[in-house]
Design a protein around this nucleic acid. Structure first.
Length: 467
RNA sequence: GGUCCUAUCGUCUAGAGGCCUAGGACGUGGCCCUCUCAAGGCUAAAACACGGGUUCGAAUCCCGUUAGGACCGCCA
């Protein structure tokens, strides 16, 4: 039988890190097995579901490259299917009408909690003979016995049915609830494997009971351990960015996030770096760990830097443009962007950082850092600068090698160390005492801009000499 | 409170009874390289939660303790 998995987010917010990993594992498992990966939107809570959330989730899935084969299916469009299933259960006496009001139930729950008792529905409508003329919800009649979950990741887990309450499957407005929809959908959509967060473990026996009441075959369950924040509590906003798209905005590469998430809870020996295809090829539920893991932004940053270093400058350039526009500099005007990017890859951990580092290349004038100027733009350097300008002017291609040759000749003639010349030139060209390597930077900057800035620096130094 | 899950360096993890004086990676410290900053190379510190078993032998199996976590909605 062909493998089918699904990712089923509820559209009540953006796609977060935890959801993305669940989606990724479902995707990888399906792809690895040449199966199908289905996207389903769980929007039965009409009040909380929004179109914006749906779009946001789809955008994030696309950005991560988690393409799905079927869907998105919407539960809100399948209410008839759920009602038919509920009617069948009612018919067979496996479900019943409950007239308790939400307020009553809430009150009883609080009292039970206060008394230290399990806040479980007492089943008072279960055996009632007559149906009063009142609004009702439909509850599933949980049978006695025990339910065994054979989880691929966690192993065998046993639940005593007496700890499970008669859950509502249809609300009093006749809309279906989560546990019921999941079962009906997973069964009718032919899911072979249900891979989800282990916060759903306690739902699993309820769902299994529903499968059997409905007469459907069980899927294989695989419960992924949670992703925690630094304080080991479930990952949430207060731990920092949890939205997938926030990482895009911070200048992360999608595959860096994917690689990071894959290794959080899954491993393949000592390997850390996986290409997308390698992930598909090597993924297996057998090597998913059981214990929850702490989200580590530093390691993600390292991976991002790794992939920036590996990426061709041309690809990076086009990704960088939106970040440059954000900073109101036009990339087209400056030296060729990919030449710039090439000098920045080693020292930019994110695209955002790279955009900041690229500013000195692209802005009109140079703004000297006072401390750097004070230390390096000294009158004694005027002569060297003039020689340098002269010789650079004579260059044709302005390659890194040519530039280096010019520096070498001057250094040798004047008996200077490179540092004595490179630092002042660096400040002259960038305004800062920190920058990419001097030859590569000059080459990337191009003849015209380099000479312009060197000449401006000479003027600056000449003024300083008079003071 | 009840149900359930989990437990190897600070963090992610390797480890499926002897290969473990426990390996890799991130981070941290040091050294090297060096035109600054990076990158890179080398190196150091750093862990089997605890207590009982089982076994010739346990990080690995079993039990208990402890500690974390999740869930207990007419939310999903």
């Amino acid at each position: 039988m062909s493998i089918r998995t699904r990712f089923a987010p509820s559209p009540t917010g953006y796609l977060h890190i935890g959801g993305a990993r669940t989606a990724l594992f479902n995707y990888l498992f399906a792809r690895h097995n040449n199966g199908k990966f289905v996207l389903r939107i769980e929007d039965t809570d009409v009040a909380r579901s929004t179109k914006e959330s749906i779009d946001a989730i789809l955008d994030a899935m696309n950005w991560l490259g988690l393409d799905w084969d079927e869907g998105p299916f919407f539960q809100s469009q399948r209410f008839d299917v759920y009602r038919e299933h509920a009617a069948a259960l009612l018919e067979k006496g496996l479900a019943y009408r409950c007239c308790c009001t939400a307020e009553e139930l809430e009150k009883r729950r609080e009292e039970a909690l206060k008394a230290g008792l399990p806040p479980k529905y007492d089943g008072r409508c279960r055996e009632r003979a007559v149906e009063p003329d009142l609004p009702y919800a439909v509850r599933f009649k949980v049978p006695p016995g025990a339910t065994i979950v054979d989880d691929v990741i966690k192993g065998r887990i046993s639940f005593d049915n007496s700890t499970i309450e008669d859950l509502i499957i249809l609300r009093s407005d006749s809309t279906p609830t989560y546990n019921f929809c999941v079962v009906v959908d997973d069964a009718t959509m032919g899911m072979t494997h249900v891979i989800r967060g282990d916060d759903h473990i306690n739902n699993t026996p309820k769902q299994m009971l529903l499968y059997s009441a409905l007469g459907y075959d069980l899927p294989v369950f695989a419960h992924l351990p949670m992703i925690l924040g630094q304080d080991r509590a479930r990952l949430s906003k207060r731990h920092g960015a949890t939205s997938v798209m926030a990482y895009k905005e911070m200048g992360y590469l999608p595959h860096a996030l994917v690689n990071y998430l894959a290794r959080l809870g899954w491993s393949h020996g000592d390997q850390e770096i996986f290409s997308p295809n390698e992930l598909i090829e090597k993924f297996s539920l057998d090597s998913v760990g059981k214990s929850s893991g702490v989200f580590n932004p530093e390691k993600l940053l390292w991976l991002n830097h790794h992939y920036i270093k590996e990426s061709p400058p041309e690809a990076l350039s086009s990704l960088l443009i939106p970040f440059l526009e954000e900073r109101r500099v036009a990339a087209e005007k400056g030296p060729r962007l990919s030449a710039i990017v090439k000098t920045l890859k080693e020292r930019s951990k994110t695209l955002k950082e790279m955009a900041d580092n690229a500013l000195f290349y692209l802005r009109e004038g140079v703004e000297y850092d006072p401390r750097a100027a004070e230390k390096f733009l000294l009158p004694e350097n005027i002569a060297v600068f003039k020689t340098l300008i002269e010789r650079l002017e004579g260059l044709e291609a302005f390659t890194e090698a040519e530039v280096e040759a010019v520096f070498s000749s001057i250094l040798e003639e004047k008996g200077l160390k490179l540092g004595k010349v490179a630092q002042p030139v660096r400040v002259a060209l960038t305004g800062s005492a920190v920058s990419p390597g001097i030859y590569e930077m000059i080459s990337a900057m191009g003849k015209e801009l380099t000479l312009k800035r060197l000449r401006e620096a000479v003027i600056y130094m000449e003024k300083g000499a008079g003071v």
